[in-house]
Simulated scan of single mutants.
Amino acid sequence: MTDIQWPEGFVPGFTDNFCSNEVIATGLSVEDIWPLLSIPANWPTYYKNSANTRFYDNKGPQLALGDRFYFETFGFPVESEVVEYVAPVNGQPARLAWHGWSGEGEQRLDVHHAWIVEELPANRVRILTQETQNGNPAKELAKTLPNPMINGHQEWLDGLLAAAKSQ
C-alpha cells in the first residue's frame, strides 16, 4: 500500500519527466492532512502555485474516484480526472491520484500525480507525492535547473504541513 501504483505509460524511467517529494513530520495525523489535500478549493490557501480549482458535473467539494476537475499550476491549465481515491481508514494509508492533461498537439502535457499519506510510529505522518509526465513540455521541464517540479512540489508539501499545523 505504500508504493505508488503507476498506470501503463506513466511508469517512472519510461516517461519524459519524473519528480518525487516526501516529508515526514511529527505531531500531525493523516486526518489533519487529508481534508487539506482531498478538497482542491483548499490548495490555493497554502500552495501559491495552485489556482482556480473547480469541479465538473456538480461534484465536489471533496475529490472522489472518477471526478473530473480543473486547476491551474506551473502556468498550465490542467484538466484532471481522479483515478485513485482511498480515504484514510483504520490506520491504513490514504491514497489519491489523478491523470491531468493540458494543451494540444506538440504542446500536450499528460501527467499522473499521486499521493500517499500514512501514519508512522511515534506520532509521525508521512506524505509522499510523485508525478510522471509525458509530452514536449515535460521534456523541457526535465532539462530545467533547478527542477521546477521538484521545487514546486516541495512548496506544496511544506505549505500542506504548515496549514495542518496551524489548524
Score class of each variant (00 low, 15 high):
Ile33Asp: 08
Pro44Ala: 11
Gln62Ala: 13
Ala64Gly: 12
Ile39His: 11
Ile33Ala: 01
Gly66Leu: 03
Gly66Asn: 11
Pro35Phe: 01
Tyr70Gly: 03
Gly75Phe: 08
Phe69Gln: 09
Pro44Tyr: 12
Gly60Cys: 08
Thr26Asn: 01
Pro77Phe: 02
Asp67Trp: 07
Ser29His: 03
Thr73Cys: 13
Glu81Met: 10
Gly66Ala: 06
Tyr70Phe: 12
Lys48Thr: 08
Asp32His: 00
Gly60Tyr: 04
Val78Phe: 06
Asp32Tyr: 00
Asp32Trp: 02
Lys59Leu: 00
Pro44Ile: 04
Ile39Met: 14
Gln62Gly: 08
Tyr85Asn: 10
Ser38Val: 07
Gly75Val: 11
Asp32Met: 04
Asn42Ile: 02
Glu31Gly: 10
Ser29Asp: 09
Asp57Pro: 13
Val82Glu: 06
Arg68Asn: 12
Gly27Gln: 04
Lys59Gln: 08
Arg68His: 10
Lys59Ser: 02
Glu31Gln: 12
Phe76Pro: 06
Phe69Ile: 05
Pro61Trp: 10
Tyr56Phe: 11
Thr73Tyr: 14
Asp32Gly: 10
Phe76Trp: 14
Tyr56Cys: 04
Phe69Met: 03
Glu72Lys: 15
Thr53His: 15
Asn58Ser: 14
Val78Asn: 00
Tyr85Asp: 05
Phe69Gly: 02
Val78Tyr: 01
Tyr85Thr: 00
Asp32Arg: 08
Arg54Phe: 08
Tyr46Trp: 15
Tyr70Leu: 09
Pro40Ile: 00
Phe76Tyr: 14
Glu31His: 08
Gly75Gln: 15
Leu36Ala: 01
Gln62Ser: 10
Asn49Pro: 00
Trp34Leu: 02
Val83Asn: 10
Gly27Cys: 04
Val83Ile: 11
Trp34Thr: 08
Tyr46Ser: 02
Arg68Gln: 00
Val78Thr: 09
Asp57Val: 04
Arg54Asn: 07
Phe55Trp: 07
Ala41Leu: 10
Phe69Trp: 14
Thr53Asp: 04
Gly60Gln: 05
Leu65Pro: 13
Gly75Tyr: 13
Leu28Asn: 10
Phe76Gly: 01
Val82Phe: 08
Ala51Asp: 06
Tyr47Glu: 03
Val82Thr: 09
Phe69Leu: 05
Leu63Lys: 02
Leu63Thr: 05
Tyr46Leu: 03
